[in-house]
Nucleic acid binder design. Structure first.
Lengths: 100, 100
DNA sequence: TTTATATATCGAGATTTATCAATATGTTTG
DNA sequence: CAAACATATTGATAAATCTCGATATATAAA
C-alpha cells in the first residue's frame, strides 16, 4: 500500500453512505434480501439492492461503487445483467496495516 | 467507534498531506529534528516542525492538526508556547477494527 | 429483433474542501 | 509591560465533491 492509494481509499471512507455500504457488505445476508436468481452471496450484492437500501439515485450509487472498486475496496463480478459487489478484504487489510 | 466518527476520520485520511503526517508521526525521530527545548518525542512533534516539513502554510497545517485531533487521530499536549502532536493509537485501532 | 431491465456515463448546479494572507490569541522573555 | 514567538481563527477564492436527471450501453427476455 502506498500513500496515493491509501488516500484514494480515505476519500471513499470520507462519506457516510460509502462507509455504510462497506459495513453492510460485512454481512450481506443480514442487510439484503437473497437475490432472486443467484441464491447465494458468494460474490456479494447487486447494485440495485445496494442502491435501494442507500436511498440515493442509481447514478450516484453506481459512481460510488465504481470508485470503491477502482481503489481496491470492492470486488465486482458480473453475472448476466447484474453486477455483484463484495468487500476486498485483502486491500482493506493492506490499508489498515499501512495506517498502523 | 460509530459511523459518524469513522467518516470524520475518513475525511482526514482523504488528503495526502494529512495522511503523510500520520505516517511521519509513527517514527518522529526519523523524520524530525529533536526539539531544542524538549529533548524527547514523548508527546510527539511541535506544529512548526510539522508545518515546515509539509511545506504548506501555517494556518493550513494548524487547521489540519486541529481537525485530526477533534476526530481523535492525534493527541495534542501543550508545553509552554509549543503544542506537540502525537498519534492516538487507541482511536486508530478502534477505526481499523470498525473497518475490519 | 424489439423491448425490458441493470448498470454506467455525462453534464450541471449546489455544497464542501483546499489553501492562503491577515489577524487574533496565548505564552515567554527582555 | 512590551516585544517576540508559537499557534489558532477568520475571511476569501479556487478547486473538488455531491448528487441528480438524462442518456448511453450491456445483457436478457419476448
Amino acid at each position: 500500500m502506498n500513500l496515493k492509494t491509501a488516500t484514494e481509499i480515505g476519500k471513499c471512507l470520507s462519506n457516510q453512505t460509502r462507509f455504510q455500504i462497506l459495513e453492510w457488505l460485512k454481512e450481506p445476508e443480514k442487510h439484503f434480501p437473497p437475490h432472486e436468481t443467484l441464491k447465494h452471496f458468494n460474490d456479494g450484492v447487486c447494485v440495485t439492492y445496494i442502491q435501494e437500501k442507500a436511498g440515493l439515485s442509481q447514478s450516484t450509487i453506481s459512481t460510488y461503487l465504481t470508485n470503491m472498486e477502482k481503489c481496491g475496496l470492492l470486488i465486482s463480478t458480473r453475472h448476466g445483467k447484474w453486477s455483484y459487489l463484495k468487500r476486498n478484504e485483502k486491500t482493506i487489510k493492506e490499508f489498515t496495516d499501512f495506517l498502523t
